[in-house]
């Protein structure tokens, strides 16, 4: 069965890149442009994995993850955080908010698909 990945990122470049890489790996991809938009999309989608950026307008990645974890329908959905930050505190905050794992940008296709497969049930 085709698995669905929701990508939440304010950068069009990164969205296109994720879309391209994940589609090529056989995932169905839905996209959102920021946390608020991501939550909107979750009203109608039940993705198998969510990938989110941290720095976004309106609602950032931390807020988005907390909101997803607080939503009974999606609290068990794995969330991977996209981050260029190597600082442990960013990861720690993402973890604290409920992130399942992370992908350090820049990612290559193998690394990305690996990470998604690793958390996808």
């Amino acid at each position: 069965m085709t698995q669905t990945v929701l990508t939440v990122d304010d950068s069009r470049t990164i969205r296109e890149m994720l879309n391209h890489t994940l589609s090529a790996a056989g995932f169905r991809v839905v996209t959102a442009e920021d946390g608020v938009h991501g939550l909107d999309v979750l009203q109608t989608e039940r993705p198998d994995v969510i990938i989110t950026d941290i720095n976004m307008p309106r609602l950032d990645g931390f807020g988005f993850i907390e909101a997803v974890r607080g939503d009974a329908a999606h609290r068990a959905t794995p969330i991977l955080v996209l981050t260029t930050e190597s600082e442990p505190e960013k990861k720690a905050r993402a973890r604290e908010a409920g992130a399942t794992g992370w992908i350090v940008k820049p990612f290559n296709p193998t690394k990305l698909v690996d990470a998604v497969r690793r958390v996808a049930a």
């Binding site: 946390g35 608020v36 939550l39 609602l59 907390e66 909101a67 974890r69 607080g70 939503d71």
Partner: peptide, 18 residues
Amino acid sequence: AGAPGKAETAPAKAAESA
């Protein structure tokens, strides 16, 4: 049990910047 509180804060933030 703890979740609704959190769920409320997020949309509130969203509404602000909306």
